[in-house]
Protein backbone atom coordinates (compact mmCIF):
# COMPACT_ATOMS: atom_id res chain seq x y z
CA UNK A 1 0.00 0.00 0.00
CA UNK A 2 1.16 3.48 -0.90
CA UNK A 3 0.83 4.82 2.66
CA UNK A 4 2.94 2.05 4.11
CA UNK A 5 5.56 2.62 1.43
CA UNK A 6 5.63 6.33 2.28
CA UNK A 7 6.08 5.50 5.95
CA UNK A 8 8.99 3.19 5.16
CA UNK A 9 10.73 5.88 3.11
CA UNK A 10 10.24 8.46 5.86
CA UNK A 11 11.83 6.02 8.31
CA UNK A 12 14.71 5.46 5.88
CA UNK A 13 15.23 9.23 5.63
CA UNK A 14 15.29 9.60 9.41
CA UNK A 15 17.87 6.80 9.72
CA UNK A 16 20.01 8.32 6.96
CA UNK A 17 20.07 11.66 8.78
CA UNK A 18 20.40 10.17 12.25
CA UNK A 19 23.40 7.97 11.61
CA UNK A 20 25.49 10.16 9.30
CA UNK A 21 27.16 11.09 12.55
CA UNK A 22 28.15 7.80 14.25
CA UNK A 23 26.93 8.64 17.77
CA UNK A 24 27.93 5.17 18.98
CA UNK A 25 31.58 6.10 18.30
CA UNK A 26 31.35 9.17 20.56
CA UNK A 27 34.72 9.75 22.21
CA UNK A 28 36.47 7.11 20.08
CA UNK A 29 39.89 8.19 18.78
CA UNK A 30 40.92 5.08 16.84
CA UNK A 31 42.82 5.90 13.65
CA UNK A 32 42.46 3.69 10.58
CA UNK A 33 44.64 4.29 7.50
CA UNK A 34 45.49 7.82 8.55
CA UNK A 35 41.99 9.04 9.37
CA UNK A 36 39.85 8.79 12.52
CA UNK A 37 37.56 5.78 12.18
CA UNK A 38 34.48 7.98 12.47
CA UNK A 39 35.52 9.92 9.35
CA UNK A 40 35.60 6.61 7.47
CA UNK A 41 32.15 5.77 8.80
CA UNK A 42 30.88 9.08 7.47
CA UNK A 43 32.46 8.58 4.04
CA UNK A 44 30.92 5.11 3.80
CA UNK A 45 27.57 6.44 5.01
CA UNK A 46 27.50 9.11 2.29
CA UNK A 47 28.18 6.48 -0.37
CA UNK A 48 25.39 4.38 1.11
CA UNK A 49 23.11 7.44 1.11
CA UNK A 50 23.79 7.95 -2.57
CA UNK A 51 22.88 4.30 -3.25
CA UNK A 52 19.67 4.66 -1.22
CA UNK A 53 18.80 7.88 -3.09
CA UNK A 54 19.29 6.02 -6.34
CA UNK A 55 16.97 3.27 -5.21
CA UNK A 56 14.41 5.89 -4.18
CA UNK A 57 14.73 7.70 -7.50
CA UNK A 58 14.11 4.54 -9.50
CA UNK A 59 11.50 2.86 -7.28
CA UNK A 60 9.49 5.48 -5.44
CA UNK A 61 10.07 8.91 -7.02
CA UNK A 62 6.95 11.05 -6.82
CA UNK A 63 5.66 9.44 -3.63
CA UNK A 64 3.94 11.91 -1.32
CA UNK A 65 4.00 14.58 -4.03
CA UNK A 66 2.59 13.50 -7.38
CA UNK A 67 -1.17 13.12 -7.41
CA UNK A 68 -1.92 11.98 -10.96
CA UNK A 69 -4.31 9.06 -11.59
CA UNK A 70 -1.60 6.56 -12.47
CA UNK A 71 0.97 5.64 -9.85
CA UNK A 72 4.36 7.24 -10.53
CA UNK A 73 6.17 3.90 -10.37
CA UNK A 74 4.25 2.51 -13.31
CA UNK A 75 4.77 5.54 -15.48
CA UNK A 76 7.72 6.27 -17.73
CA UNK A 77 9.67 9.48 -17.58
CA UNK A 78 8.07 11.56 -20.25
CA UNK A 79 10.18 14.66 -20.11
Amino acid sequence: MRRVELGVWIAVAVILVGLSIPWFLWGTATVVAGLPVWVWWHVGWMVLASAVFRLFATRAWGIGIETGETSPASRGDTR
Binding site: M46, S50, F53
Partner: peptide, 18 residues
Protein backbone atom coordinates in the same frame (compact mmCIF):
# COMPACT_ATOMS: atom_id res chain seq x y z
CA UNK B 1 15.11 20.64 -17.35
CA UNK B 2 13.34 17.36 -16.55
CA UNK B 3 12.43 14.86 -13.89
CA UNK B 4 15.40 12.71 -14.90
CA UNK B 5 17.76 15.63 -14.28
CA UNK B 6 16.24 16.03 -10.84
CA UNK B 7 16.67 12.35 -9.99
CA UNK B 8 20.26 12.12 -11.18
CA UNK B 9 21.41 15.28 -9.39
CA UNK B 10 19.72 14.11 -6.19
CA UNK B 11 21.45 10.72 -6.39
CA UNK B 12 24.94 12.09 -6.97
CA UNK B 13 24.65 14.86 -4.39
CA UNK B 14 26.01 13.18 -1.17
CA UNK B 15 29.08 11.89 -3.02
CA UNK B 16 29.89 15.32 -4.40
CA UNK B 17 29.66 16.82 -0.91
CA UNK B 18 31.88 14.26 0.76
Amino acid sequence: GSKTVFKRSFTLWPILCV
